[in-house]
């Protein structure tokens, strides 16, 4: 049994976000982090590893520096890491990306008791699309928005979050599950894990390795293989400055309430 966890390195949008004058994101000036939902996916896998002793493989597609993130996940307890990296893969949208990752998973070989975990969505694009699209390419059943996972043999019972509750879903392995932050509390790296992280295997899957995989259509990868195009990106205008009220006492509050009443909004 093995668990493959798909992860993404993303700019930390909770910090200061830098936008260049042309409206594109100044990625160079931003910190990168492991996508938060993906950490819940890794934790879900590590919990199953604690229970069953299965192998946990973390996979990402990205530029070579993404290796640093993979090492951190090895330091949390993953056993192996795979970095999918090639110039030909650059500019892929979710459709093209899911195809490449599905091919990589297919290359590793998916067996009957294997599970693929993903985070629900990445904080840079917030699309939540790559997980289900990998499942479709691999022909796997999917359960998204998992907030609770119980494993019993080859059967998983999953609580899938809805806006006003949840559904309980039963699914058999192999399957793909996307995880939300309510699922668990991700563990930290451990000191021992850190010192082992640089000794664990890190494989790089490049274009040549994957191009002949049956799930890959070489015309459907990278920018050219992406059905969607960005027409334009832009920064929204900042709302005009309001007014700072003087003081912070009862008179200030009375004045504010007066204005609101005058505008008929209370």
């Amino acid at each position: 049994m093995k668990i493959i966890v798909c992860v993404k390195q993303v700019p930390d949008t909770s910090g200061k976000v830098a936008v260049k004058p042309d409206g594109t994101l100044d990625r160079a000036s931003m910190q990168t982090i492991t996508n938060p939902d993906d950490l819940n996916a890794v934790e879900a896998a590590l919990k199953l590893k604690d229970e069953t002793g299965c192998e946990v493989i973390v996979v990402t597609m990205g530029p070579p520096p993404a290796e640093g993130m993979l090492r951190e996940l090895l330091a949390r307890g993953a056993d192996r890491a795979v970095l999918i990296s090639a110039r030909e893969f650059g500019g892929s949208d979710t459709y093209a990306t899911s195809q490449i990752i599905a091919a990589a998973i297919d290359h590793m070989g998916l067996e009957n008791d294997d599970i693929v975990f993903c985070g629900r969505q990445a904080i840079d694009g917030d699309t939540a699309q790559v997980g289900p699209q990998i499942a479709e390419k691999l022909g796997l059943p999917q359960v998204t928005y998992a907030q609770d996972i119980k494993k019993d043999g080859d059967s998983l019972t999953i609580q899938r979050a809805l806006e006003d509750g949840y559904m309980t879903i039963k699914v058999k392995t192999p399957c793909l599950i996307t995880c939300i932050k309510e699922l668990n509390e991700p563990r930290y790296m451990s000191v021992g894990g850190i010192y082992e992280a640089y000794e664990k295997p890190m494989e790089v899957y490049d274009y040549n390795l994957l191009k002949d995989n049956p799930l890959i259509d070489v015309n459907n990868i990278g920018l050219a293989g992406s059905p969607t195009n960005i027409l334009i990106s832009f920064t929204p205008p900042q709302k005009g400055a309001g007014q700072m009220l003087e003081g912070a006492d009862q008179a200030t509050c009375d004045k504010l309430a007066g204005i609101l009443a005058e505008k008929h909004i209370i």
């Binding site: 840079d124 917030d126 832009f234 920064t235 929204p236």
Partner: peptide, 17 residues
């Protein structure tokens, strides 16, 4: 749609499909 935590807006088209 918004992207990057709402710092950027992007307009997407699907011209070929």
């Amino acid at each position: 749609r918004p992207a990057f935590g709402g710092n950027l807006m992007a307009t997407i088209i699907c011209p070929r499909f």
